[in-house]
């Protein structure tokens, strides 16, 4: 009996995989395959679209919107680095100094995000308005020039992205930091001259899975985001997500919108693989 079960052990991972995997297969892979075929069609909404295996749309779409692609990746990298810098100390404090209220602190970090995005963003626009109570006051004190503004600049778009994706960084970081065995940290404190050195040699390397996961969860959605650039940005901050949105809804240019989407996915995939190699994570790269 137990021997029979042993023999079936190979099936266990598949049992774990099947429910979620099937879900993704049916509700993600199949529809995406349809979109892939749409990207190779030509035509228009009025005349109808027909599959012509138009692979030329891919290089064409890339060159047409190269600026927006590059800008999106630039913002994505900046946002990931900033959220890491802001989020790591937070996650560290919660994990190591949070005591019994760890889970509660964690909930506090995520709580603002149960509020509608529109309300949060409108609030930010109110706070950061040119004549609002923040900038207005600083201007009244003569600390800022009159023409200074934050909204509709790359700064406001990046701040918006950082704000909105910070929990995506903090949660996995916390998750990874929280499991680190304190005895290791103490041993390191005994061994190395300074706490900081101990942190660099022990805590940081041990938290790398969290850094990697957090970076993925922040970088990927921020590269593809369009909402922050729409509400907080200007013409000079148009991201590739805005282009895809507009191609899809304004132009009903479904093939090009899909093609741009797939290019974005491929580019992100490449970036992530490179990053995984750099960080030395075994995810995605090796079995």
């Amino acid at each position: 009996m137990t021997a029979a079960i042993r023999r079936l052990r190979w099936a266990i991972p598949y049992l774990f995989l099947v429910p979620g995997g099937l879900w993704l297969l049916i509700f993600f892979v199949v529809p995406m395959a349809v979109m892939a075929s749409i990207s190779l069609q030509t035509g228009s909404l009025g005349t109808g679209y027909a599959l012509t295996w138009n692979f030329g749309i891919y290089p064409e779409a890339i060159s047409q919107f190269a600026t927006q692609f590059l800008r999106s990746f630039e913002y994505g990298i900046i946002v990931t680095v900033l959220t890491l810098l802001i989020g790591y100390p937070m996650a560290y404090t919660i994990a190591f100094r949070g005591g019994r209220v760890k889970n509660i602190l964690l909930l506090l970090v995520i709580l603002p995000f149960f509020t509608s995005f529109i309300i949060r963003t409108l609030a930010w626009k109110l706070i950061l308005a040119d004549q609002g109570f923040l900038l207005g006051t600083l201007k009244a004190w003569g600390l800022l020039p009159d023409g200074f503004g934050l909204i509709a600049t790359p700064i406001s778009v990046i701040s918006g992205l950082v704000y909105n994706f910070l929990p995506f960084m903090v949660l996995p970081l916390y998750v990874a930091l929280e499991k680190i065995d304190h005895r290791l940290v103490e041993a390191a404190n005994d061994l190395y001259a300074s706490r900081f050195q101990a942190f660099l040699r022990v805590t940081l390397p041990l938290s790398m899975p969290g850094v990697f996961a957090g970076s993925l969860l922040t970088f990927i959605p921020s590269v593809g985001d369009f909402v922050n650039a729409t509400i907080l940005g200007s013409r000079e901050t148009t991201m590739i997500g805005n282009v895809i949105q507009s191609r899809f809804l304004d132009f009903n240019d479904y093939p090009r919108a899909s093609a741009l989407g797939f290019v974005l996915m491929a580019a992100i995939l490449v970036m992530v693989l490179v990053y995984a190699r750099l960080v030395g994570s075994d995810e995605l790269t090796s079995g």
């Binding site: 626009k125 109110l126 308005a129 040119d130 004549q131 503004g149 909204i151």
Partner: peptide, 8 residues
């Protein structure tokens, strides 16, 4: 609307 009302 907001941007005009709050002087941006």
């Amino acid at each position: 609307y907001d941007e005009l009302a709050n002087k941006n």
